[in-house]
Amino acid sequence: MNEIIAFAFLAFTSFFTLINPIGTMPIFMTMTSNLDDKHRAKTAKKATIAAFFTIVLFAFSGQLLFKFFGISVNSFRVVGGVIFFLMGMDMLQARLATIKVKEDQVKSYVNDISITPLAIPMISGPGALTNAIVMMEDATSVTHKIVLISAIFIVLLLTFIILWSSSKILKLMGETGQNVLMRLMGLIVMVIAVEFFFSGLKPILIDIFGKMN
Results as ranks from 00 to 15, higher is better:
90 D>H: 10
90 D>Y: 06
92 L>M: 10
94 A>L: 04
98 T>S: 04
101 V>M: 06
102 K>T: 04
104 D>G: 00
106 V>K: 15
107 K>E: 14
108 S>T: 12
108 S>Q: 13
109 Y>S: 09
109 Y>H: 13
110 V>C: 01
111 N>L: 07
112 D>W: 05
113 I>S: 12
113 I>C: 09
113 I>Y: 09
114 S>E: 09
115 I>M: 12
116 T>F: 13
117 P>H: 04
123 I>P: 05
123 I>L: 15
124 S>D: 06
124 S>F: 06
124 S>Y: 05
125 G>H: 08
125 G>P: 04
125 G>I: 08
129 L>G: 09
130 T>M: 11
132 A>G: 07
135 M>N: 06
135 M>C: 01
137 E>P: 00
138 D>A: 15
140 T>F: 01
140 T>K: 14
141 S>I: 06
142 V>F: 12
142 V>D: 11
143 T>F: 00
143 T>W: 02
145 K>M: 12
145 K>L: 09
146 I>Q: 01
150 S>G: 14
151 A>R: 08
153 F>N: 02
155 V>G: 09
155 V>F: 06
157 L>V: 14
158 L>P: 03
160 F>Q: 09
161 I>K: 14
169 I>S: 08
170 L>S: 09
170 L>C: 00
171 K>F: 01
171 K>W: 00
171 K>Q: 10
173 M>H: 00
175 E>D: 12
176 T>R: 13
179 N>R: 15
182 M>N: 12
187 L>Y: 08
188 I>D: 05
188 I>K: 03
191 V>G: 07
193 A>N: 06
195 E>K: 09
196 F>P: 01
196 F>K: 06
198 F>K: 07
